[in-house]
Design a protein around this nucleic acid. Structure first.
Lengths: 340, 340
DNA sequence: TCCTGGCACTCGACTGTAACGAGTGCCAGT
DNA sequence: ACTGGCACTCGTTACAGTCGAGTGCCAGGA
C-alpha cells in the first residue's frame, strides 16, 4: 500500500514516457530519461510494487510496463498539474472564435478548434434547452392549416417545427395565438414550461381552444421532450493517429459510439457545477468505449452552465494538456456567449 | 480490343465474386461458381486479354485477378442491371420515413436509413437554398439594437442569423421592415434575390434606410453566400467493415475528407438533372478518396431537384444494389417533400 | 534498512529455410 | 478455337534459431 514519493515519481515517469512514445517503458530507459537518482534495479523493485497495486502492467513478460486505467487515474488525480497553455494556443483560440456570427457558427468553430488543438475527437453540446429560457416564440403561417413554430432561446438557439392544425385558422387568430403564447412563455425557463403550456390551453378563448391544444402538444413534444439536445462533432480522423495501436486495432466500436447522440450526451453533457471531468477507460459506462478516455467540462455565459464540451481519445492521451485546452476553450466560449 | 460476350461475362463474374468474397479470384474458382461452359484454361486466356486492356490486374504474380477502376466502370456501364429492391427493403424505407415531423428529422432519418441499407457511409445534402424560394422572413427583436432574422424556405429549411443594428430601432419600425422585406422577397427564388435586396435598400423610406442597409448586407451574406449548404452524414463505422483491406490500411484520408463539407458537396451535390452518378476510385477529384467510390443522385419534390444524396464506400462495393437503394430512397424523400 | 550490481531467465521480434499450394502462362493436341 | 497438361512463380505458413530488451532475484555494501 505504501507508495512513497519515489514510486509515485516512477509512475509519473512511466505515464509521461508511454504517452509520448507509445511504447512499453522499461527500467533502464526510465533512469536514462528522468533524473530519478537511483539505479534501474531499484526502479524495477518499485515497478514490481506498482504492478502489484494495479497501477501498471506488462503487456507480456519481458516487455516494459504500461499504465493501467487505475494508473492514469492516480496520475491525473495526484501527479499532474494542469499544463498552462502556450501563447500560441491562446492566440489560436482567440483568432478562431472571433468573428463568429451565429450560435451555429460558434459551435462549429469551437468543435473544430478543440479537435485541432488537442488532436483528438472533439464534442460540443449545443446550449441545452432545459437550461435556456424562451426569448420569443414566432408563429408563421405556411398555409391555412399549417404553422411553422419557431422558438428562439436566450442562448441563441433556434428550434422550429411544423404544426399541422386541426382546421383552417385565419390570420388574425394566428396573431392572437402568437400574443397569448409569448405573454405566457417569454422569459420562462424551458424546464418550467409544462405547467405554463397547460395553463395556456385552459385559459385560451373557446374559439382558439382546439388550435391551442394542438400547439401545446407540439410545444411540449418538440421543445421539452424530443431531441432537445444537439451535438457537434469533429476530428474523427484523429482516431487514426497512433496507427491502430490504440483501440486494439479496430475503430469500429468507437465510430459506432460516436454516432449515438445519447452516448455523447452522457459523456460530455454537463452534470456537476463546472468541474472538469475526466473519464478514463472503462470508467465510462459504454462497452464500446472501454479503450477511450474523455475529458469534458461545462460552459456557459458567466457562472451558469448551459452545455458541455470535451474531447475523446485513447486512454494514452496527454491529460494535463487536454484538460488545460478543454478548460480554456470552455472559458472563451462562455465569454463569447455572455457578449450576446 | 475485341471483347466478345464471353470475356464480358468473365469480367462480370470477377467483379461479382471479388465484391462478395473480397479476395482475388482465380480461373478455377470462377468456372466452378459460374456456368461459363468453358475450362479454366480458356478463362485464363480471356483474363490475360482483360488484363492487357486494363480491366483487371493481379495484386502479385500467382494470385487471382482483381478488377481495376476501369473494370468496375465497364461493369457499371454495361454489365449490370439495377437490382430491384427486396420487399423488406421497401418496407424498411417506408417505415423509416413515415412519422418525420421536420425537415431536420427527414434528413436525419434519411441519412441513417441509407447508411443502414447500404452498409456504407451515407451523405445527404439539405435542400439547397439556391434552389429554394423564400416562404417567409421573420424579424424578431432581441434588444433595441439587435434583431434575429429568420428565413423560412419553401423546402422547409429554416436559417437564422443575428443582426447587429447600427442604432436602436423602435418596434413599429421592425413591423414596417418585416412587411417591406416580405413584400419584396416572399416567393422569390433565393438565387434571384440579390437585385431584389438591392431594390429594397433603394426603395426604403429614409428613416429606415440605415437599418435596411445592414439588414440587406446580412441577408446577402448569410442566405446567399455563406455556408448556404448543409450536410448530414452517417455510417462512418461502416468504413471499418472489410477490416482494413479496403482503403489500403488507413482510414485517415477518408475520415479527413468526410469532415470537409466542400468535399462532400462536390461529391453528392446535384448537378445534372436527375441521373444517378457513380464515381469510381480516382474518377473523383480528391486524392484522399482515390480508394473510394460514390453513388449519388438528386432528390426533390416532384420532378425538380433541390439537393443530393448518396453513399460512399470502397471501390469494391455492390454497385447495382447501392444504385437501386440510393434511387429508391431519393424517390421516397422526394415524395415526402412534395407532401409538405 | 535500503540500494546496487550481477546473473539467469523469459519471451517477443526478427531471420532464414523449407514445404505447400493457388494460380499463372504456354504449348501441343483435338 | 478450346482443352489438358506441365513447368514455373511467389505468397503463405510453419518451424527453428538467434538476438536483445526487460525482468526477478539475490548477495553484498552503505
Amino acid at each position: 500500500m505504501g507508495l512513497d514519493d519515489r514510486k509515485l515519481a516512477v509512475l509519473r515517469a512511466i505515464v509521461e514516457d508511454y504517452v509520448s512514445t507509445q511504447e512499453p517503458v522499461g527500467s533502464k530507459a526510465l533512469v536514462e530519461r528522468h533524473q530519478l537518482g537511483v539505479s534501474p534495479a531499484t526502479v524495477r523493485n518499485d515497478m514490481a510494487v506498482l504492478e502489484e497495486e494495479g497501477y501498471i502492467r506488462q503487456p507480456h513478460t519481458s516487455a516494459g510496463r504500461v499504465p493501467t486505467d487505475r494508473g492514469y487515474r492516480l496520475f491525473v488525480d495526484r501527479l499532474s498539474r494542469v499544463k498552462p497553455l502556450s501563447p500560441a494556443e491562446r492566440r489560436a483560440i482567440e483568432r478562431f472564435l472571433v468573428g463568429a456570427v451565429d450560435l451555429d457558427d460558434v459551435v462549429h468553430r469551437t468543435v473544430r478548434l478543440l479537435a485541432q488543438l488537442t488532436r483528438q475527437v472533439a464534442v460540443v453540446q449545443y446550449p441545452s434547452l432545459a437550461r435556456s429560457s424562451v426569448r420569443h416564440l414566432e408563429l408563421v403561417p405556411i398555409s391555412t392549416t399549417r404553422l411553422m413554430l419557431v422558438m428562439i432561446a436566450d442562448t441563441g438557439r433556434v428550434e422550429q417545427r411544423l404544426v399541422e392544425l386541426p382546421g383552417p385558422v385565419p390570420a388574425d387568430d394566428v396573431t392572437d395565438l402568437r400574443r397569448l403564447v409569448n405573454e405566457k412563455l417569454a422569459g420562462a425557463r424551458l424546464s418550467d414550461t409544462p405547467p405554463l403550456v397547460q395553463a395556456l390551453v385552459e385559459e385560451a378563448p373557446p374559439e382558439l381552444r382546439p388550435t391551442m391544444t394542438t400547439l401545446a402538444t407540439v410545444l411540449l413534444e418538440t421543445l421539452v421532450e424530443r431531441h432537445e439536445e444537439r451535438i457537434a462533432l469533429a476530428g474523427t480522423a484523429n482516431l487514426t493517429r497512433g496507427g491502430l495501436l490504440d483501440f486494439q486495432g479496430s475503430l469500429r466500436p468507437i465510430l459506432e459510439a460516436l454516432e449515438e447522440e445519447v452516448v455523447l450526451l452522457k459523456l460530455i453533457g454537463e452534470t456537476e457545477p463546472s468541474t472538469t471531468r475526466v473519464l478514463i477507460g472503462d470508467e465510462n459506462e459504454f462497452d464500446n468505449l472501454r479503450a477511450a478516455s474523455v475529458v469534458s467540462t461545462g460552459y456557459g455565459p458567466g457562472a451558469t452552465i448551459v452545455g458541455g464540451l470535451g474531447v475523446l481519445g485513447p486512454t494514452r492521451m496527454d491529460y494535463p494538456g487536454n484538460i488545460a485546452t478543454v478548460r480554456a476553450v470552455a472559458r472563451y466560449v462562455g465569454e463569447l456567449l455572455a457578449q450576446n
